[in-house]
Design a protein around this nucleic acid. Structure first.
Length: 584
RNA sequence: GACCCCGUAGCUCAGCUGGAUAGAGCAAGUGCCUUCUAAGCACUAGGUCGCAGGUUCAAAUCCUGCCGGGGUCACCA
């Protein structure tokens, strides 16, 4: 269905037949050949660099080689002209009939159009959000959440087996702090005066109800206990409560994970021990003293011997400690265990979606995965840059310490999940993103969500009109795919079909690059194509979609519109955004 | 000091893993509403792709070195 791949196969076959006939030397390396759309449509529909890439190997001049290959390509079905241009590009132009039948194929495939099998046999684990269970999700988490979720969908669309995963950091010091903060609120709930929340505790009011709930469940049970007694039970209660809260927040943006993995359970199951054993066996642990970090010197720095992992053997800059001074594992040690756990569950590719502030973490984790899985499991880390939240251009400052942060929920309540999701995907993950609460609700071209949704809604509107006014024109997908599509001859109409034809290729490229944002740009372009068609019909009556005097042409155009709507919907679905029927 | 990311039109950004004359949207200028939603469309203008080298048929894209902006940097997660 990806026509570029189809023609690439034909190209390979053509070259191989030339080899068999001794008109080209045998054993040519074809891996660097490409078939792609030329940037300039004047150059044709497809272009290949074959002649230039093979020139050296074949010992022939590119133009000469191009002539030879071009001759073969001329015989291919759907090819109208073959031209040689520039330094040796071979440009193909496909017939109108080819494109018309392409449209028919698209409609036959329906929702499935754009699916690919490039991921077949691969099991991918996408870990995203993984926020500490110490508070509600903020807008800061939103980007990684949406990017991870869309990426997971994208990979599913390309045939990967995907697991969406959330890693709960419920084993470290932060959840102890959480427990202490909740304990305070618990005492408060039981009528005690607690004064101001001490420094270092979580001050957020959202913990009041957690304390309240604890009081309701356990009564005064923990009031006169030592911390050593209440810490663990309060902690697990609090973590459970907060995970419920977080899950609800995620649900509000349409996110549900397949697996929620607890760090604590992993540790208690001895996963860290076995990682350490494994590293010992491979002789990748030793006791050493680290250099103090340059630039920023921690005040309480002390040079002391530590148990270190030989990360430098696997591309990291320094070896990394796995034991803290109190004898417990470092976060990194736990995380090694966690990543090995993921690999052991049979995933061939691991993806971590993290905030850009974790950039310093990438090398060591990659080193760890490489060491632990003998390089059999790939780890990709996607770093999401900050989101700058503004309203009418004015920045909304946030700071976690003061408790003055905007929650994910607040933003969803204000703009809706669809808008939030789409906007979060309009930038490359490693580029900062501006999110203007006012602008994203604007009903204009500046607002990409609106622009794309409007195109979809307009199409639905036309189809509804057609149903009412021209009920004899069949609109079922199978009817449309059998419509007299040869009537679509206007260059703008054909251009739209060509755009639609490039959709599978775009999906594959986005998936391979782990870049869902490309879909947003594609949808914007497709919407623009459509709005152009629409206005052309305003200027020239013959180009209108609904022509009562010509039901055949009307049906052909409805087929085109339906296909556009289908692809827009399909792209939005990857984003987890609902296509709208009308704008209201 | 080390490492990672970014640098493309006045502004915000794309650029299909190396292809032909580098593209959109804002902003600026000019047109288009008796019509299926003008909430839109068409056209004009705008560039030493941070700088300098290198790799090759071909570099915004890959390599090296600078310049500028951001992030991170034992024992936090």
């Amino acid at each position: 269905m990806n026509i570029f791949n189809t023609f690439e196969s034909s190209l390979h076959a053509s070259i191989e037949s030339l080899c068999k006939e001794d008109r080209l030397p045998a054993g040519l390396d074809l891996t660097r050949l490409t078939v792609e759309p030329p940037r300039d449509p004047d150059h044709g529909d497809l272009s290949t660099n074959a002649a230039m890439v093979l020139a050296k190997q074949a010992g022939r001049k590119p133009r000469e080689l191009a002539d030879l290959i071009a001759e073969r390509l001329r015989g291919l079905e759907g090819v109208e002209t073959v031209e040689i241009a520039g330094p040796g590009f071979i440009n193909l132009r496909l017939s109108d009939r080819f494109w018309q039948s392409m449209l028919s194929e698209i409609l036959k495939n329906g929702e499935a159009y754009g699916e690919s099998r490039i991921g077949e046999g691969q099991s991918v684990n996408v870990e995203y959000v993984s926020a500490n269970p110490t508070g509600p999700l903020t807008v800061g988490h939103a980007r990684g959440a949406v990017v991870g979720d869309a990426l997971a969908s994208l990979l599913q669309k390309t045939g990967h087996k995907v697991t969406r995963e959330y890693y709960v950091n419920d084993a470290g010091g932060q959840v102890d702090t959480l427990a202490r903060s909740v304990y305070l609120r618990y005492r408060e709930a039981l009528g005690e005066e607690i004064g101001t929340i001490p420094e270092g505790m979580y001050p957020g009011a959202y913990l009041c109800e957690v304390g309240q709930a604890l009081a309701e469940r356990d009564g005064r049970k923990w009031m006169d206990c030592e911390e050593s007694e209440w810490l663990a039970p309060v902690r697990s209660f609090a973590v459970e409560r907060l995970m419920d809260l977080i899950r609800e927040d995620l649900k509000a943006v349409g996110i549900e994970h397949d697996v929620i993995r607890s760090e604590k359970e992993l540790v208690e199951a001895g996963a860290v021990q076995s990682v350490i054993e494994r590293l010992k066996e491979k002789d990748l642990l030793y006791t050493g003293v680290l250099e103090p970090p340059k630039g920023k010197k921690p005040e309480d720095w002390e040079a002391r011997p530590q148990t270190l992992f030989r990360a430098t053997d696997f591309g990291d800059d320094v070896d990394r400690p796995i034991l803290k001074s109190d004898g417990s594992w470092t976060y990194f040690a736990n995380d090694m265990a966690y990543h090995l756990d993921k690999a052991n569950r049979g995933h061939t590719t691991l993806i971590d979606v993290l905030g850009a502030d974790h950039g310093g973490y990438v090398k060591r984790m990659k080193a760890a995965v490489k060491a632990l899985t003998d390089d059999t499991t790939a780890l990709h880390i996607i770093l999401c840059q900050l989101v700058k939240l503004t309203r009418d251009g004015e920045e909304i400052k946030m700071s976690k310490r003061s408790g003055n942060f905007i929650t994910l929920r607040e933003v969803v309540d204000e703009v809706g999940k669809d808008v939030l999701r789409f906007i979060m995907l309009t930038r490359k993950n490693d580029a900062p993103l501006d999110f203007d609460l006012a602008q994203v609700m604007e009903e204009s071209k500046d607002n990409p969500v609106f622009y794309v949704q409007y195109a979809h809604a307009r199409i639905r509107s036309v189809l509804r009109h057609a149903e009412k006014e021209l009920p004899s024109v069949g609109q079922g997908l199978s009817q449309l795919s059998d419509a007299p599509l040869h009537r679509l001859t206007d260059s703008a109409e054909l251009a739209v079909i060509k755009r639609l034809a490039s959709w599978p290729r775009l999906v594959e490229a986005s998936a391979q690059a782990y870049e869902p944002h490309r879909i947003a740009f594609f949808l914007n372009d497709l919407a623009s194509d459509f709005h152009g068609l629409w206005t052309k019909g305003k200027d020239n009556e013959e180009l209108r979609f609904l022509l009562p005097a010509d039901p055949e042409l009307t049906q052909a155009r409805l087929a085109l519109l339906q296909a556009v709507a289908l692809v827009i919907a399909s792209g939005l679905n990857i984003f987890g955004v609902r296509p709208v029927e009308e704008m209201r």
